[in-house]
């Protein structure tokens, strides 16, 4: 009961009722829970590429968003590139931070915790001897990623830590980064 009373006064802009409704509906019809996310990337020039994102498949049919998002990726000038976008690895870090931050808001709403501000700083360690092929023992990807949250919320420190922990537990990008995934790349 306390949770419900609190939910009425707490507003993080997350429609928890809709999310819980979706969970219930998709539990009953697992086929509708099968989604396919898509992105299309076009080479522009040098290391600059542009990805567009719009439609996806889910809830049993093709879905349109009514707008197309564009993400530019490039390398910085230090790599003798045109610097027309963030590097792909930074976009991965951005995806992780966004996923965890959205999760924090959703969990906070569900738990009746008012958020005042949330900032996530992400830092990833990478040894470039990997991607440059200097040392085959060094992996291409991150050695470690650290996410530091600064959260101002009407809750105890332990409750805030529990929000962040629960957000990781339910995060798609956290799972994508921490667990292996089969990747198939084809040339048509």
């Amino acid at each position: 009961m306390t949770n419900q009373t609190q939910t009425e006064t707490v507003n993080n802009g997350v429609n928890v009722e809709a999310l819980l409704g979706a969970r219930e509906a998709l539990e009953a019809t697992p086929a509708a829970a099968q989604f396919k996310w898509r992105a299309e990337c076009t080479w522009k020039d040098g290391t600059h590429s542009q990805t567009t994102i719009n439609n996806f498949f889910g809830l049993g049919e093709e879905q349109e968003r009514g707008r197309t998002f564009t993400i530019d990726a490039d390398h910085p000038e230090q790599f003798a590139a045109a610097n027309l976008g963030a590097t792909p690895v930074e976009i991965v870090m951005s995806a992780l931070a966004s996923c965890l931050t959205g999760g924090v808001a959703s969990v906070a709403q569900h738990r009746g915790i008012q958020l005042n501000s949330v900032t996530a700083s992400v830092e990833g360690d990478m040894d470039l001897q990997g991607i440059l092929g200097i040392d085959s023992k060094v992996r291409n990807g991150f050695d470690a990623i650290r996410v530091n949250f600064q959260i101002d919320a009407d809750a105890s420190d332990a409750d805030i830590k529990a929000l962040v922990a629960q957000s990781q537990k339910r995060s798609a990008v956290f799972d994508i980064i921490t667990n292996p995934t089969n990747v198939f790349v084809n040339v048509n």
Binding site: A158, A162, A165, Q168, K169, F174, I177, T178, N179, P180
Partner: peptide
């Protein structure tokens, strides 16, 4: 998290798993 080419792969989520248990 998986077994590939004779190697066990472990999830990188251990830190959070331990935080969850401690909390």
């Amino acid at each position: 998290a998986g077994i590939n080419n004779g190697k066990a792969q472990f999830s990188g989520s251990l830190s959070n798993i331990c935080d969850l248990a401690d909390l």
